[in-house]
Simulated assay, not measured.
Amino acid sequence: MSDKCDLCLLGLIILSSLLTGISGVDDHVFISSGENVRLSCNNALSDCKSKTTWTYYNRFRHSAAVELITLGIKNKDTERHERLSLESDCSLNIKNVTEEDYGSYSCRQWTEHQQQGTDARVYLHVLHVSPSSSSSSSSSSSSSQTEISPGRSVTLSCQLYSDTGLSCDYWVSSEGVELLWVNQAGVDLKTDSRYQILSSSDQYRCIITLTTTLLDEDNNREWRCQLTQRNQVKTSVRYTVKYSDVIFVRNSSRTDHM
């Protein structure tokens, strides 16, 4: 009986550690790829810029944390140092976010070689859309561009990249996070029989795909992958179909910052 109680207690401790970020101790930021994002350092000191270290960790991409900024100085050995900047309030700016930027970021403050307070952690969740089309004669090098034409089938895959260790089911049931494909009027495309909408997931992504056969009247039509939390739009990616001599799908994104 004692062993069972010990196991139950251990389970509660693990669950509590996973939910720490959701409960408000850590920050969660949702952003679409291609946008710029600002990650706040909630434990910043006054005149903190030269005292700040930002580290990045992603369990699926790195075996250990990577120092992006050390005491206010950017680490030029990191592959994305040109897209990073440190603000006077010690927040971290990331330009032109990619799906590979998802993960946890920690802000640490130092004075006289001693850490001050605890790390302030921010989880960055990135929404990204990858199109494909049966009419493409060759694969496109850009995730926002693919050859299309009327009468062909096109599939748009909307993916939310996350490194919290929590399942998509948890995000939906407990945090009210939902991925939707909607039209220009904001109507859920699941209500239209011409669209096939499928949801899936893996270790680090929640995925929702849209598949449809293109019609002549789809020229200039917009579809939007929308991420909501408790029915409030957090970020979205818009795709507009264009038929022309050079046929492509154009991508733009918008995030409603809270």
Rank of each mutant, 00 (worst) to 15 (best):
D3S: 04
D3R: 10
K4T: 10
L9V: 14
L10V: 07
L19Q: 03
S23G: 11
G24C: 03
E35S: 13
V37L: 03
V37E: 04
C41N: 07
A44W: 04
L45V: 10
D47A: 13
C48Y: 07
Y56I: 09
H62Y: 12
A65L: 05
L68M: 09
T70L: 09
L71N: 09
N75S: 13
T78W: 11
H81T: 04
E82I: 12
S85K: 01
V97Y: 08
E99S: 14
T111Y: 12
E112R: 06
H113L: 15
R121S: 12
V122F: 02
H128G: 01
V129C: 12
S135P: 00
S136I: 04
S137D: 14
S137Y: 08
S144E: 10
S144F: 06
I148H: 00
G151Y: 12
G151T: 12
S153Q: 14
V154W: 00
T155Y: 05
L160R: 02
Y161E: 03
Y161A: 02
S162C: 05
S162D: 15
D169H: 09
W171K: 02
V172D: 11
S173E: 13
E175A: 15
G176V: 03
L180E: 04
A185G: 08
A185F: 01
G186W: 01
L189S: 03
S193Q: 11
R194Q: 09
I197N: 05
S200M: 12
D202T: 05
R205P: 00
T211P: 01
T211L: 00
T212I: 07
D216P: 04
C225M: 03
C225D: 00
Q226K: 08
Q226A: 05
Q226M: 11
N231E: 11
Q232P: 06
T235I: 02
S236W: 06
V237Y: 05
V237H: 00
V241Q: 02
Y243I: 07
V246P: 06
I247C: 06
V249E: 01
R250P: 08
